[in-house]
Simulated assay, not measured.
Amino acid sequence: TRVDTRAVEAFRLRRGVCQDFAQVFIAACRGIGLAARYVSGYLLTQPPPGQPKLIGADASHAWVEIWCPRQGWLALDPTNNLVVGQDHALLAWGRDQADVAPLRGVIRGGGQAWPQVSVTVTALP
């Protein structure tokens, strides 16, 4: 998928990246009357010993928060099918990906340039 893929298209394709899973989950939550917001951040790159890396490690990642009146905001990672924990580093939240894009800008010039980005997240001692 691409950054401008709509939730309905990702749902139809039954595949996508973390932002697609987040957008589909948000649409489903809002469809049944739950307040939900899009979260942008990063995942810890090095998992605990014997555990696989989570999907989205080494790149920006997206997940969802839903409002629970008795508990407040509950953070869920639909891409990895888990409750968000200390391995998730929150950067921003908004209505959707457009509200919290990690980078925005314009490149002027000729030819084509495709940025290559990688992220390493490590815990501080």
Rank of each mutant, 00 (worst) to 15 (best):
V3G: 03
V3Q: 12
D4K: 02
D4R: 06
R6I: 08
A7G: 02
A7T: 02
V8T: 11
V8W: 05
V8Q: 09
E9T: 07
E9S: 03
A10H: 05
A10M: 00
F11V: 11
F11W: 13
F11K: 07
F11Y: 13
F11Q: 08
F11P: 00
R12W: 02
R12A: 11
R12P: 01
L13K: 10
L13W: 04
L13Q: 08
R14N: 00
R15A: 09
R15K: 13
G16V: 01
V17T: 05
C18R: 05
C18T: 03
Q19L: 05
Q19S: 14
D20H: 07
D20I: 00
D20K: 02
F21Y: 13
F21K: 03
V24C: 15
V24M: 14
F25E: 12
F25C: 10
F25Y: 06
F25Q: 04
F25N: 09
F25T: 05
I26V: 11
A27S: 02
A27P: 00
A28Y: 00
A28K: 08
R30G: 13
R30N: 14
R30C: 15
G31C: 04
G31F: 13
G31Y: 13
G31D: 10
G31L: 09
I32H: 03
I32L: 03
I32N: 02
G33I: 13
L34A: 12
A35H: 14
A35F: 14
A35R: 15
A35C: 13
A36K: 14
R37Q: 15
R37H: 14
Y38P: 02
Y38V: 10
V39W: 05
V39Y: 01
V39N: 08
S40K: 02
S40G: 13
G41K: 06
Y42A: 14
L43I: 10
L44M: 08
L44R: 12
T45L: 01
T45R: 04
T45S: 13
Q46E: 15
P48F: 06
P49S: 13
G50P: 05
G50E: 05
Q51T: 00
Q51V: 01
P52C: 00
P52K: 08
K53N: 05
K53I: 03
L54F: 04
I55Y: 12
I55H: 12
G56R: 03
A57L: 08
D58S: 04
D58E: 09
D58K: 01
D58N: 07
A59F: 03
A59E: 15
A59L: 09
S60W: 14
S60N: 12
S60K: 09
H61A: 07
H61C: 00
A62Y: 04
A62N: 11
W63Q: 10
V64F: 01
V64K: 04
E65P: 11
E65T: 02
E65K: 02
E65W: 01
I66R: 11
I66T: 02
W67S: 12
W67V: 09
W67F: 15
C68H: 09
R70C: 06
R70K: 10
R70P: 07
Q71M: 13
Q71P: 01
G72S: 09
W73R: 10
W73V: 09
L74G: 06
L76I: 12
L76F: 12
D77L: 04
D77I: 00
D77E: 07
D77Q: 04
D77W: 05
P78S: 11
P78W: 14
